[in-house]
Amino acid sequence: MEPFWKTKSLQQMTRSEWESLCDGCAKCCLHKLIDDDEQDQMVDTNVMSDSEQLHFTSVACQFLNDKKCECTVYPERTTLVPSCVQLTQDNLDQVFYMPSSCSYRRLQEGRGLPSWHPLLHKGKKSKMHQAGMSVRGKVVFDNLVEEQQYEDFIVVWPLQDVD
């Protein structure tokens, strides 16, 4: 029998199936900056025009457990951090900043789950960490860095996508 992610569209998945697709890399917990040509500066925002460029930083939300790559306040995350977005089937198209390695994005683009995905390894994240696809050991927390300094923490490793 084929696994649900091969037989169902993202829209057809139950909430439980949808949640299990998250690979737990925690790249979505990183602050992202947008090159704003008009203001000649980097801005932390959730809106981007075609002429702007997205940059990932190694600055993570203070509520991230960087060892487990899990949110420590998951049920309350959108209340405690208003800029935290709950990814759903309905807003996936609008959440432009998901990295190319994101399982939701990969499935939406027809690329399937990556070989390191926890669903392919009995729910364990060890292959993902070994492949360098998570934020484990790579971040500093936003409660320790001034927002004006985020530009000093721009990184390219979140854009890596290995299969």
Score class of each variant (00 low, 15 high):
Q149D: 14
S103E: 08
F96R: 10
T7L: 11
I34P: 03
V59T: 04
L54Y: 05
M98L: 15
P75H: 08
D93V: 02
D37N: 09
I154E: 00
V145D: 00
S51M: 06
Q149A: 14
E76T: 05
F141I: 10
D35V: 04
S9T: 15
Y74R: 06
Q86N: 14
W5P: 04
V73M: 08
K122F: 06
Q41V: 05
Q11C: 03
L21G: 04
S58F: 02
N65H: 10
M128T: 07
V59K: 01
K8G: 08
C71I: 09
D66Y: 06
C22P: 13
C84F: 09
P158C: 00
E2S: 12
W116R: 07
D36Q: 09
D93S: 14
C29K: 07
C71G: 06
G137R: 04
L144P: 01
D90N: 14
V85G: 04
C28K: 07
C25T: 01
C61I: 02
A26K: 05
K68M: 07
Q149V: 01
S49Q: 09
G137L: 04
R105L: 12
P114S: 07
F56H: 03
K125G: 00
V135Q: 05
Q94E: 15
V145H: 05
G112W: 09
Q62S: 12
R111W: 11
L87C: 12
Q149T: 01
E38D: 14
M48W: 07
H129N: 13
T72W: 04
L33D: 00
T7Y: 09
N65P: 10
L92E: 08
C102M: 13
Q149Y: 01
F63Q: 10
V73G: 06
Q53I: 14
M13A: 11
Q160N: 12
C29Q: 05
Q11K: 15
W157S: 05
F63P: 06
V162P: 00
K122W: 02
K124L: 15
G110A: 14
K138H: 07
G132D: 01
